[in-house]
Nucleic acid binder design. Structure first.
Lengths: 243, 243
DNA sequence: GTCCGAGTTTTGGTCCGACCAAACATATGA
DNA sequence: TCATATGTTTGGTCGGACCAAAACTCGGAC
């Protein structure tokens, strides 16, 4: 009652840890706890908030799940100002469970197609010179990596990544990061080959060509064709234990 | 994806709680712990896993942040099989921090426009009879609520919600839920009026008309016009403490 | 002066036992 | 039958304790 230090946000008293979370949260966003720097020691916070270590630890755990601090097993938690990557990271753990069955993966993949369709349409309509340059560069990387399937896989993702950066909205690169990290593992047991790589390269080229010709519909068409083919190709390579 | 092994502490010895989390996680997805039912008591789990209550509590906390159980302050944790709503819920807490400044809100709103553009285009191209029916019904609700701003606000969201259900991909309704819950609070200090409501009703009507005419471009156009106008209207009603 | 490794202190991870108050279960009385 | 009093279970919090790994200190070797 009286030991509480600052601004006792006295909403509910169900959880003592919530006060600590709120306080630390405020200190983090206000910059009082600087980004990339370690949190004070637990025993120090415990004194600072006049509570037990139990509560402090629970608060830190919550902050961690909120993405406001990064915790490694035996190290001090590192303060981390939340960004769009943080959001995706928070989703990631839960998303895994939704990818357990074929339907889940298909749904996610469909949503990716959905997003990229508009991405390429917009690119065709309003891509700037530097966007075009980035696309050309990325495509060039594709071409050079055709013989190296691992490398091609990376440049493949990179090419699509350029698309997500064109709107200059930081949400999209984060989404791309999500699609890549969540879907990619499922592509691992896909058979790769220079032939497949070359086909994908040409698909990318078709998309870029349509963008260069400022033809949104053609670009969208090419994108759909590309991603549909990719899905058809990997669909059967999964070993579905369900179905 | 085999990041954690469920067996004994073989892999990493940093966190005893991880084993418990993995075990309970497995029991939940396998249905051994049935959905909607309470978790065993902490003291029971503690005996079951041969570990201290501290570890059990930490595990439960982690499961909660993963969305696998729902915890209310003094109640037994309820097992909850993760769904798409769970994902959005996990993001929600972090997203708040990104909406602190004008840029964050604009980015999120832009992404919403981005999504709905394709939603209405697709609706115009391939909406089924029942989709059309739902849209008409939702629009009718709009019309009836013009004089009641609070009610109109709800039916407004509902109309857009129909759009998100058309693709029959459960990801989209979840996204809509996210947009609604994250953006709506920011709209609260917007001045509402029957005039505004009527304008929005007609905007919705224009979108539906374009869909009925199977004219994707017109539908997209109408949607953009609608959402741009909405943004222009609320933009100045915020009291930006930045900029 | 810099670098490195042994020794010391700090600190996170875990465990224990205890207490309280709220939820839950049971019995009681109208 | 149902509302109420009573007893038990159980989550939330506390304080203290121990261990091992990380962080820090310091002195000797080069």
């Amino acid at each position: 009652m009286e030991t509480r230090s600052s601004a006792e946000s006295g909403a509910g008293n169900g959880r003592a840890a919530d006060n600590v979370v709120a306080a630390l949260e405020a200190q983090i966003v206000s910059g009082q706890l600087k980004n990339r720097e370690p949190l004070p020691a637990e025993r120090e916070l415990m004194e600072q908030f006049g509570t037990s270590r139990t509560v402090i630890r629970e608060a830190i755990s919550k902050l961690s799940s909120l993405g406001l601090v990064e915790t490694r097993p035996r190290f001090r938690p590192i303060v981390r100002k939340p960004d769009y990557a943080t959001v995706l990271n928070a989703c990631g753990n839960v998303v895994q469970h939704l990818l357990a069955d074929k339907t889940g993966i298909k749904n996610l993949y469909d949503s990716r197609v959905f997003v990229e369709r508009t991405l390429v349409r917009d690119a065709a309509m309003s891509a700037q010179k530097d966007d075009i340059f980035d696309l050309k560069t990325a495509l060039e990387q594709n071409k050079k990596a055709i013989s190296d399937s691992d490398e091609f896989f990376r440049t493949d993702i990179a090419f699509h990544g350029v698309l997500y950066r064109i709107p200059k909205n930081p949400i999209f690169p984060a989404i791309h990061e999500g699609y890549s990290s969540w879907l990619a593992p499922r592509w691992n047991n896909m058979l790769r080959s220079p032939e497949r790589n070359e086909a994908n390269y040409f698909a990318h080229k078709a998309i870029l060509d349509a963008i260069l010709e400022r033809d949104p519909l053609a670009a969208e068409e090419a994108l759909i064709s590309h991603l549909s083919a990719a899905w058809d190709f990997v669909r059967d390579t999964f070993d579905w234990n369900d179905e």
